[in-house]
Amino acid sequence: MLPRRQTGEWGLRIGVCIKQVPDTDAHPRIADSGRHVDDRDVNWVISSCDLCALEEALLLIEAAEQAGGGRPELVAFSLGPARVEEALRKALALGADRAVHLLDDGFQGGDALADGRALAAALRREECDLVIAGAQSDDLGQAATPAVLAQVLGRPYAWLVMAVDLEREHRSVRVLRELEAGMNEVLRLELPAVLAVQAGINKPRFASLRGTLQARRKPLERMDSSSLGLDPESVGKAGAGIETTAIRLPPTGGGGLLIDNASPEAAAAELIAHLEREALL
């Protein structure tokens, strides 16, 4: 086991969970099996909300340092195959102090519940006071893993967080949470707590060259099912509540009309004619 770093007199440790996903700007291809996305030629990146989670943790740490009382420690967690190490190195380059890679063949085929159980075990082991993750991933978008962490760890939870402040005097966090219809809610959560942050909460920074060089020397620990004391039946495919049976292109069109005209002027004129017929102009 690596020695624990000092976390300042407040003794705060923040855990950020990141997921590596296919770059969503590219069009995914369906694999021959019909059940998976073809992962050849995929550019793997950190899911955008998770980058915001990491940035928010860095901002909290910088604010805590400025207020005095030492630097909280930041640990990045990710579950996935060997390629995920690149995402963790990026988190280290951005400013995380340590990284934990949940790497085990037995984790393959897990859903949010199975992966959440494994991540929760690692977060518990590292005694994280505040866990921050993205509100939903760019690939499956289930918005479930952070909630599973909160439930398994037995901690208060807030989803769609748009602002966070550490409240040292209360040992709590004050958060702004998005509601429907353009309303926000202000909440106080006692620590330890789990937060899922919404995209747009901040603008994630870019890694500096110095950060990238430093990242190579920062500790990255691997944990598997047995080192986490997990029942192999509770993780991966065996522990998943769902199974994907097929992946398809979405059904096209609600009978919409494609205005197929090479010239922008002609297309615009044709659209105006349609809008006139619809009595909209």
Binding site: G241, E243, T244, T245, L249
Partner: peptide, 20 residues
């Protein structure tokens, strides 16, 4: 039982079978 949901920002749809 079969459920359908959009994945990859609605670029694809997955058909999902519950195991529980």
């Amino acid at each position: 039982l079969r459920f359908r949901r959009a994945i990859l920002q609605a670029k694809l749809q997955a058909e999902v079978r519950p195991r529980a």
